[in-house]
């Protein structure tokens, strides 16, 4: 049984593919993160991430299928589920080994699995685009934090960058403890050790908020409450579209 481990980065996964072709040894099991040695499996093939090797695999995927497919693979990787790396390696092998482009062969289980997961990641990113709630700080910048199911922030940033070009903002992933900061010029990745955020609702400490912030949260909540048509109340559909896990971060659903 071939066991591989990698550093849980996308480049790492592509390097793993490169190495398995070179060694003609393909993984039956993939362990994520450094030091994730599992004695049960005995020897583990530990992959050292190499950007150049990763690049070659990326290009290989594009030439055997399409650029969109390479991006699809990246987005599926962001799902971060324990089985994802192995699924992806199998999918990439299918793409590279087939003489034809198999990305649309929906009769194959692995293709269907990849597309299902891709759909899930994209819909989470789409939800985040909608459910992010900025709080205005006393300095006039805007802050949002929450805990997405998958690591989708990188997919959301271009949208926020385009939409909020004239306000400085931070969007922070509380679950993965990192975020992105836009300073009116560039977007950069940030990590805070002493974030003054209530992890129960993603709200910044009141002392950091702009004076009228609570007022607008109240206005929004008021708006939200009075547009519901009681005659048409439908809790099932409501929860289906607005899953409970988001509620605590939304001023309209919470206590202000």
């Amino acid at each position: 049984m071939n066991v591989f481990s990698f550093d849980n980065t996308f480049e790492g996964l592509l390097t793993l593919v490169f190495e398995s072709y070179r060694q003609k040894q393909f993984p039956d099991e993939i362990l994520c993160g450094e030091g994730s040695q599992n004695v049960l499996f005995g020897a583990t093939n530990t992959i050292a991430t190499n950007v150049l090797k990763a690049e070659r695999v990326w290009k290989g995927i594009i030439s055997h299928s399409s650029e969109e497919n390479a991006h699809r693979i990246y987005r599926v990787f962001l799902s971060g589920l324990p089985d994802t790396p192995l699924l992806l390696v199998n999918y990439i092998r299918l793409i590279i080994d087939s003489p034809k482009n198999e990305e649309t062969n929906f009769a194959l289980l692995v293709v269907v699995e990849i597309n299902k997961l891709h759909q899930k990641v994209c819909s989470e990113a789409h939800r985040i685009n909608g459910f992010v709630r900025f709080q205005k700080t006393s300095e006039g910048s805007y802050f949002a934090s929450f805990a997405p199911l998958y690591d989708v922030l990188p997919l959301c940033i271009p949208h926020f960058h385009d939409r909020y070009a004239d306000q400085s903002w931070i969007i922070y992933d509380l679950k993965r403890n990192y975020g992105f900061w836009y300073d009116l010029k560039n977007v950069s990745r940030v990590v805070f050790d002493d974030l003054k955020v209530n992890s129960q609702n993603g709200q910044l400490h009141t002392s950091l908020l702009a004076e009228d912030e609570k007022h607008f949260q109240k206005m929004w909540k008021q708006y939200y409450q009075c547009i519901c048509i009681q005659e048409r109340r439908n809790d099932k559909v409501h929860r289906q579209h607005l899953p409970k896990r988001f509620w605590k971060y939304l001023p309209e659903k919470g206590v202000i």
Binding site: N129, G130, I229, L242
Partner: peptide, 9 residues
């Protein structure tokens, strides 16, 4: 983009 959903769905 949907930013929220009312209780009537």
């Amino acid at each position: 983009i949907c930013h929220s959903f009312t209780e009537d769905g």
